[in-house]
């Protein structure tokens, strides 16, 4: 099964083995025809309509604006409906450094996103802490507090890299089973169990 998205040939993607593995998992136990086709339809819709949350902390955010502008135009793929409210967004693009004071805020934003939700860590800082790794106030990657689906390295990544990252997310969505929970949530549930919020009430 060639999992691809419109606008880029299958061979051009770099990590096809990973997606193949996910696709195999998806097909492992066979599928009811009705549920299967319904899944396909839903996944077609989901993977073609990925709305980002407008969330940016530093330089990567400016590149994210550039991604929306005329030259890179993410509207071509239907990603331009950037929602300011996390309830209505599909994924959070962590664009920029996450520091200690911001960590609970990012976690809350993640919790406020409506299911199904995804995370793209954009830029060196969100991936691993980047140039500020040794600081007393910087997280070594946003993966410490929320589960990340796609990592986009760079400082800041070029808009092309961001497009590639979101396309990869779109491909990941296609090899999920919406009914029956294959390839989704199992790692996440565990992650969230291991990173509890100490005190949810203000």
């Amino acid at each position: 099964m060639e999992v691809t998205t419109k606008g880029m040939p299958y061979e051009a993607f770099k990590d096809n083995e990973y997606i193949e593995k996910l696709a195999d998992e998806l097909r492992a136990n066979g599928t009811n025809v009705v549920v299967g086709s319904l899944d396909k339809l839903i996944n077609w819709g989901r993977s073609n309509s990925i709305w980002p949350l407008t969330f940016a902390t530093s330089c990567c955010g400016i590149e994210f604006i550039a991604l929306g502008a005329a030259r890179y135009d993410m509207a071509r793929f239907g990603w331009e409906v950037a929602r300011a409210s996390p309830r209505q967004a599909d994924f959070i693009m962590v664009a920029g450094t996450i520091v200690h004071r911001m960590a609970p805020v990012v976690r809350r934003l993640y919790d406020q996103l409506a299911e199904p939700k995804y995370v793209i860590a954009t830029g060196g800082c969100a991936v691993s802490g980047g140039p500020f790794k040794n600081s007393y106030h910087v997280l070594k990657g946003v993966g410490e507090i929320i589960p990340v689906d796609v990592y986009v390295p760079g400082c800041p990544p070029r808009p092309e890299a961001m497009i590639y990252g979101i396309m990869q997310l779109s491909r990941k969505m296609r090899v999920e089973r919406f009914f029956g929970g294959v390839n989704r949530q199992e790692n996440r549930e565990e992650f969230l169990r291991n990173h509890p919020i100490d005190n949810t009430e203000e």
């Binding site: 077609w44 819709g45 989901r46 073609n48 309509s49 709305w51 239907g78 409906v81 919406f178």
Partner: peptide, 8 residues
């Protein structure tokens, strides 16, 4: 596609 997404 957006409609399918929003529905689920």
């Amino acid at each position: 596609a957006d409609m399918f997404k929003i529905l689920i």
